[in-house]
């Protein structure tokens, strides 16, 4: 069967009503960006899942390499001074 008619793959990101970040929700096939947006609307927002859609060609995504997991993510582990619980404050102190 002809391969040239297969729609390319797109990744879909949706921002929900709550106003948080766009979140990856899945993928779909579409011939162009316009169609990808509409397909995303028709497939991924049928239950009021969002108020904003991004579509990105899957081929445009650069992902981190699982082999880099240690050098990428381990070094953050012991930097506990970045978190508020690292600091002791007197019991009675409010609103901090």
């Amino acid at each position: 069967m002809a391969n040239h008619s297969e729609f390319p793959l797109w990744e879909v990101f949706i921002r929900s009503h709550g106003g948080l970040n766009h979140k990856h929700v899945g993928s779909l096939h579409a011939a162009d960006a316009q169609m990808a947006l509409e397909h995303a609307r028709d497939v991924y927002t049928r239950r009021m899942e969002g108020v904003s859609i991004w579509v990105v060609p899957s081929t445009a995504i650069t992902a981190s390499d699982p082999a880099d997991t240690d050098p990428f993510f381990e070094p953050a582990r012991d930097k506990i001074y970045r978190h508020p619980t690292f600091y002791d404050i007197p019991e009675g102190l409010k609103h901090m």
Partner: peptide, 11 residues
């Protein structure tokens, strides 16, 4: 003609 289009028409 394709799943996505099928779903669009049902909408």
């Amino acid at each position: 003609p394709e799943l996505e289009i099928d779903m669009a028409m049902t909408n």
